[in-house]
């Protein structure tokens, strides 16, 4: 029972990271209808960047986190402004491949700049480890959970209480209405990429003390973020969070009870099954099928 609870907790913590990845994916999708295959690389960059700044360069941790977020957000904006905006063909497939190419480039740049070693980052500290009977939550876990709550509130406020956020959401569906609020679809997309990438950087930085930073982490983190976003219903931010938690928990439980080796496969199988049998997501209602 206790090991079950322990698995559940570590699943939830992992799920918080996936939720943040899924949120980034969702924000970009809502603002520009682009499925960003490079989203996982933002998490990778956050982790590897933090490791580079703190472990290698010896800067203080708080500065490292800020730098990691800022740099990743910058990369995100750059990707949108320099590449996606200037694509000759706006068809879905070319854009997908453009984001895959950007992802490869980010991974390659990460490897070139920060090296190819697996690096551990000290945890953020401040909170003590929580012990409840035999069950515990590591200090970094508290950071992760609190950050997701804070991020969730901030995003909710942005998208439902500010004109800027509402216009951003509308930019892809009602470009003209958004323009009237002073937001061009391009600006909205750039802002979405900034937020998504910054969020990815943050999630990657938070994850780095728990699972080491490595330049190849982005592929699986990205796919799990996709799995979470798709499971929650494409384009639904609340669904992204719930989807992330579901993926995290199922993964941790299967690691505990089935086989730790296969745990990575579980998220992808969920992704496949949801796409095939419930493309509107586990939470979504019955979507009107357009023939």
């Amino acid at each position: 029972m206790d090991s079950f609870l322990q698995n559940l907790i570590s699943g939830c913590l992992l799920g918080c990271i996936y939720a943040m990845a899924a949120l980034g994916f969702t924000i970009v999708f809502n603002a520009s209808r682009i499925v960003n295959f490079a989203n996982g690389e933002f998490l990778m960059l956050g982790g590897v960047g933090l490791a580079g700044v703190v472990v290698t360069a010896g800067l203080p941790l708080w500065l490292g986190v800020i730098l990691a977020i800022a740099c990743t957000a910058f990369v995100g904006v750059l990707m949108q402004v320099a590449f996606l905006n200037n694509a000759r063909s706006a068809d879905e497939l070319s854009l997908v491949m453009l984001t895959i190419g950007t992802g490869l480039a980010i991974r390659g740049a990460g490897a070139l700049i920060f090296g190819r070693s697996v690096t551990f980052v000290p945890d953020f500290g401040l909170f003590p480890m929580l012990l409840m009977g035999d069950v515990y939550i590591v200090s970094q876990g508290i950071w992760i959970a609190l950050t997701l709550v804070a991020v969730g509130i901030a995003l909710w406020y942005l998208f439902s209480r500010t004109t800027f956020g509402k216009a951003m959401k509308a930019a892809s569906q009602e470009p003209r209405a958004a323009a009237l609020c002073g937001i061009e679809p391009r600006q909205a997309a750039a802002a979405a990429f900034a937020i998504a990438a910054g969020l990815g950087g943050l999630a990657g930085a938070l994850l780095a003390p728990i699972s080491a930073a490595f330049y190849e982490n982005g592929v699986f983190l990205g796919l799990k973020g996709f799995a979470a976003a798709v499971a929650g219903g494409m384009g639904n931010p609340l669904g992204a969070v719930v989807g992330g938690l579901i993926i995290g928990v199922v993964e941790a439980l299967s690691a505990g009870y089935v086989s730790s080796g296969y745990k990575d496969g579980v998220a992808f199988i969920i992704l496949l099954l949801v796409l095939l049998f419930r493309p509107q997501g586990l939470l979504g209602g019955v979507s009107v099928k357009r023939v």
Binding site: G101, A105, G108
Partner: peptide, 16 residues
């Protein structure tokens, strides 16, 4: 990887 990625980006941008 970097060159691969940038090449893919360039191709998709200029010659989809």
């Amino acid at each position: 990887l970097l060159v691969y990625g940038l090449a893919m980006v360039a191709i998709m941008m200029l010659a989809p």
